[in-house]
Simulated assay, not measured.
Amino acid sequence: MFFGEPSPTVVRACVRDGRGGSPTLVLDDGPFGEAERRRLPGEAGASHAVFVSPGPEQDGLPLFSLRFFTSAGELPSCGHGTIAALGHLAARADTDSTRVSLRVAGRTFPAWAVRRESHVEAGFAYGSVELREPAPGESELVLPALGIRPDALGPGVRVASVGRPRLLVPVTSRSELAALAPDMERLREACDRLGLLGCYVHSAPSPSGRAAARMFAPSIGVPEDIANANSTACLAAHLAGHGFPRIAVDMGDSLGSPATIRAGVSDSGVLQLGGDVVVTRPFP
């Protein structure tokens, strides 16, 4: 099903109309030390690196295990990194349609990718999302660091977790979202104190489920993420109970790299996450 010797590749995950996306390094796993795993993303001009290990077949499908690193260390999971890895695998498959099993942090799940003329459409079945109301003091510690005015804050602040908790923060409009200029040091201290991965600030969805978001995560070495798919899955899980079975979230515009992530609940009730991938260049 797969051909050729894989090589380290930088791909753009979750591109929008073929543009932008989050540069992500994808490479075969090997005897890398911790320091090297943390150094490689920056050397490749990426915020994240995905290390891929092939394994025995799972349910008749090729199995690949994934590990994710930023300059700050290993992440238990990474949604856009998973999408990037799928684009990389699809680019060297011998068919236009690819189905695999992926293993991340002890969980195995189905994933798929389809090669198009200019990009790869990738998606996978997501796991469970834990949602809760913020505990007393959590929002009060974080929101001032984000710089959100009280009248710009929307209803429904939530703490969401897919291994590590993050704060979902609604604002009233895309313009309010674009104007945010968080105090990163203050935000990092607040997130560290509360054990939060970061803050995913999002606009209210349109009737069709289109929204915009910005993810601030200085605690993991990413002041602002171009595309944060895990948090988009968290938002999809939250909005599924409010009449939005599927959403498309625009990110990256404030960083000059437009990205879009798709998420939603399938007809069978499975939360799915996906995006488009462009394989750009080998590394180094």
Rank of each mutant, 00 (worst) to 15 (best):
residue 65 S to K: 12
residue 155 P to A: 10
residue 249 V to C: 03
residue 154 G to A: 00
residue 75 L to R: 08
residue 66 L to A: 01
residue 242 H to S: 14
residue 40 L to V: 02
residue 13 A to N: 04
residue 195 G to P: 03
residue 118 S to I: 11
residue 157 V to A: 14
residue 13 A to K: 02
residue 62 P to V: 05
residue 270 V to N: 09
residue 29 D to S: 12
residue 272 Q to C: 12
residue 77 S to F: 04
residue 116 R to W: 04
residue 32 F to D: 02
residue 150 P to W: 01
residue 127 G to S: 05
residue 12 R to H: 15
residue 221 G to E: 09
residue 166 R to Q: 13
residue 35 A to R: 13
residue 238 H to E: 14
residue 38 R to L: 10
residue 241 G to C: 05
residue 156 G to P: 12
residue 108 T to R: 15
residue 83 I to A: 09
residue 127 G to C: 02
residue 105 A to W: 11
residue 154 G to V: 00
residue 117 E to D: 15
residue 233 A to G: 09
residue 149 R to I: 02
residue 167 L to F: 06
residue 246 R to S: 15
residue 206 S to D: 04
residue 267 D to F: 02
residue 258 P to Q: 05
residue 82 T to E: 10
residue 44 A to N: 10
residue 121 E to P: 05
residue 180 L to E: 01
residue 62 P to S: 12
residue 190 A to Y: 00
residue 26 V to P: 02
residue 104 V to E: 02
residue 95 T to V: 11
residue 171 V to R: 08
residue 35 A to P: 08
residue 150 P to V: 01
residue 205 P to W: 07
residue 188 R to Q: 06
residue 204 A to I: 15
residue 165 P to M: 05
residue 104 V to L: 06
residue 67 R to T: 13
residue 268 S to I: 09
residue 157 V to L: 14
residue 263 A to L: 08
